[in-house]
Design a protein around this nucleic acid. Structure first.
Lengths: 226, 226
DNA sequence: CGATGTATGAAACAAAGGTTTGAAAATATG
DNA sequence: CATATTTTCAAACCTTTGTTTCATACATCG
C-alpha cells in the first residue's frame, strides 16, 4: 500500500472529489435539507451508495465539504493579518490593512477564476444558517480564528472598547456575506445599476465601507470622552 | 354569512393563524426544505390536512407567511422615509435620517416584545436564500420598494454616483441582516463581549456604521473630483 | 327543522428520502 | 497467478414526505 498509491487511490480520490465538488455547489445554492443524496450522486456521476461509502452519511459529507477548505481560508486570513502586525511591530495598526486581512481572502476566493473556491464562500454563507449540530460545532471552532482579529482591531483603534469593536466586526462580516449571497444575481435592488468591477475594486469598496463604519464609532467615542 | 361572522369564522382564523405563526417560526429557523408539513401541523395542533385546506400546498403556506407581514414592513419604512423627505422639502437630506428609515423598522420589529414580528424578520433573512420560485417572484416585487431609497440617498449624497450608492445600500442591508441571523446566538465571535443593549441603541449603532461607510465613499469621491 | 357550505378528522397514497446489503468489478499485495 | 482489499453497482428496505380522499361534525341560513 506504500508504494505508488496507484490508479486505485487516484481514481478513488477522483470520485471522492467529484462528490465533494458537487455537494459543495448544491449545498451552497439549496442548503443541506434542500439537496438529496440522489441529487448529488446523479450529478457527480457516481453510484448512490458512494456517499455513504466515503463519508458515512449525508451529514458526514456536509462536514467533509466544510473541512476541506475551511482551514485553508483561515490560514490565508491569519497570514495576512500577521503580515500587518509584523510590518508594524509597535504603535497603532492601520485600520484598512487589518480589515483587508479580514475581507480580502474571502473576496479573492469568491473571484477565483475556476470557481472552485468561490463556491465554497457561498457554501460558508449557507452554513451560518444550517442547524445540523455537528456542523454547528465545527463552525464555532472555526469562527474562533476570527477572534484573533479583535486584538488587532484594538491596536488599530486604541480608544474603542472591545464591545464596540465586536459590533463593527459583526457589521463588516455581514456586509461581506450579504454581498456574496447576492453577487450572482446582483442585483434585485440595483437592477444592473451596481457595477461590480474586478476583484480588488470590490475588496477596496468593502474595506472602505467598513473603515468608515469603524471610524464613525471612533469619532463618537473620542468626542464623548473629551 | 354577512351578519356576525360568528364563532365559525373566528375559530377558523384561529387555526389559520396558528399555522401561520408556527410556520413562520419553523421556516425562519430551519428553512423551507427543513420543515415538514407534519412538523407544522403538530406544533400548531391542527390536523395534517389543514395546511392543504387553507393554503393549497406547502409552498402556498410559505407565500402566505411572507405576504402576511411584508407589505406592513414596507409601509412602515416608506412612511418613515416620506417623513424625512417632508421635513426637508428642498436641499440635501440628512444621511442618518434616511438610513434610520431603512434600518429602523426591521430592528424595531426584531425587538418586538411579543416576538411575533421579530420572527418574521428572521424569516425574511431566510427567504433571501430560498429557491422556491413563487417566493422568489414575490421577493423581487417586494424588494422593489427598497429602490425608492436610492433617490433619497442621492439627495443625501449629491456627489455620489448611483453606482456607489447601490453598493452602500447593499452593505448596509448586509450588516443588518447578518446581525439578525446572529442575534439569538450573539455571539460566536464575541462570546458575550458584545453588549446588545436596547432597541434604539442597536438602531443607532447600525445607522452610525452605515453612515460612516457612506461618508468614507463620499470623501474619496469629492477628493478625487477636486 | 332541513339544507348548505365550512372545518376537522383519520386514513391512505404515491413519491422521494437516507441508508444498508451483498455480489461483481477493479486494484493492490505477496 | 492467487489472495486480499478497495471500489462500484443494482436492488431493496424502511421511513418520511406532500397531498388527497371521504366521512364526520359544525355553524349558518332559508
Amino acid at each position: 500500500m506504500n508504494s505508488a498509491e496507484g490508479a486505485q487511490r487516484r481514481k478513488a480520490e477522483e470520485a471522492r472529489d467529484r462528490i465533494l465538488n458537487v455537494a459543495e455547489r448544491l449545498f451552497a445554492s439549496r442548503g443541506f435539507a434542500g439537496v438529496s443524496v440522489r441529487d448529488i450522486t446523479a450529478e457527480a456521476d457516481v453510484n448512490l451508495a458512494a456517499v455513504n461509502y466515503y463519508f458515512g452519511s449525508k451529514a458526514g459529507l456536509l462536514k467533509a465539504v466544510f473541512l476541506r477548505r475551511a482551514t485553508a481560508l483561515n490560514r490565508e486570513r491569519m497570514a495576512e493579518l500577521q503580515a500587518v502586525v509584523d510590518a508594524h511591530p509597535s504603535g497603532a495598526l492601520p485600520l484598512p490593512a487589518v480589515l483587508r486581512a479580514l475581507l480580502g481572502p474571502p473576496v479573492r476566493w469568491q473571484f477565483d477564476p475556476d470557481r472552485g473556491l468561490g463556491v465554497f464562500i457561498q457554501f460558508l454563507a449557507r452554513c451560518q444558517m444550517e442547524e445540523e449540530p455537528e456542523l454547528r460545532a465545527l463552525f464555532y471552532e472555526d469562527v474562533e480564528h476570527l477572534r484573533r482579529f479583535i486584538p488587532a482591531l484594538k491596536r488599530a483603534l486604541p480608544e474603542m472598547p472591545e464591545d464596540e469593536i465586536c459590533w463593527g466586526l459583526h457589521f463588516a462580516l455581514g456586509a461581506m456575506h450579504h454581498t456574496f449571497t447576492h453577487l450572482p444575481r446582483l442585483g434585485p435592488i440595483s437592477q444592473g445599476r451596481c457595477h461590480i468591477g474586478n476583484r480588488d475594486e470590490v475588496i477596496e469598496r468593502m474595506v472602505e465601507f467598513a473603515t468608515g463604519g469603524f471610524e464613525a464609532a471612533r469619532a463618537r467615542i473620542t468626542a464623548s470622552a473629551r
